[in-house]
Amino acid sequence: MKPKAVVIGPPGSGKTTVGRLLAERLGVDFRDTDHDVEAVAGKPIGEIFVDDGEERFRALERAAVQEALTAHDGVLALGGGSVLDPGTQADLAEVPVVYLEVGLSDAVKRVGLASARPLLVLNPRSQFRKLMEERRPIYEGLATIRVATDEREPADIVDEIVKGLS
């Protein structure tokens, strides 16, 4: 069992919003590994980072991604940093990967700078820029479909993804 599509991208790219719409369009279930991690830990991701540390979060995230990639046949959204794991990168070679590209200004508008995102706590704009620059080559390398999301409606993005999956 493999997902019909795996949606990746930085925070604010629209992975959950677009992923849900894509699943609906394809007539399949939607799953978000961030929600899986929170369910296993029994607390929000921000609290996992504070209480248990990033290393523990990444271990939970890796386990969630592995399980979802083998047990879910719908649309799967991954947490923005999950692609940093070499095992996840290798696993994604087996499935269609949709990279939602987003510019810094659009991402900041969507995420907000006062959010509870743990990696953006100190100097959020600078941290966000750094995060995007570090991860962009990984996202691009994993993608079988790349879709720009800036100033676009989710339904239009889904239209483009569906065409790319055909």
Rank of each mutant, 00 (worst) to 15 (best):
L22D: 14
V95N: 15
K109Q: 01
R135H: 06
H72W: 14
V50A: 09
A77F: 12
M132A: 09
G103Y: 04
D52R: 00
V40M: 11
P154H: 01
R25Q: 05
E134C: 01
G27V: 04
V18K: 02
V97L: 09
L69N: 01
T16Y: 05
M1N: 14
D91F: 03
A116M: 06
A71G: 08
G9Y: 08
V162T: 10
G9V: 05
P86Y: 07
E24C: 03
V18S: 02
T33F: 07
V121R: 13
R56Q: 04
F30Y: 12
T33M: 11
P11N: 12
G46W: 02
S166F: 08
R125P: 07
A64D: 13
R135Y: 07
D29Q: 12
G74W: 08
G80M: 13
R135F: 03
R110G: 08
S166Y: 00
E151Y: 00
G27S: 04
V6N: 10
V75L: 08
R62H: 10
A77W: 12
R135G: 09
E101G: 10
L76F: 15
I8L: 00
D159P: 00
A64F: 10
E133W: 00
D91E: 14
E101W: 11
P10N: 09
P124E: 06
A114T: 06
A68H: 11
I8C: 07
R125Q: 09
P86T: 05
S105G: 04
P11G: 09
G74H: 07
L76W: 14
R20W: 06
E160L: 15
K130N: 04
L100K: 08
L22V: 13
K109P: 00
V7A: 09
A77I: 06
D159E: 15
G87T: 12
G12V: 03
E151C: 01
P3Y: 03
D32Y: 06
E67Y: 14
P3D: 01
G141P: 15
S166D: 11
P124A: 00
A114E: 12
G164H: 02
A64Y: 11
E94M: 05
E38Y: 01
L69T: 04
G27D: 08
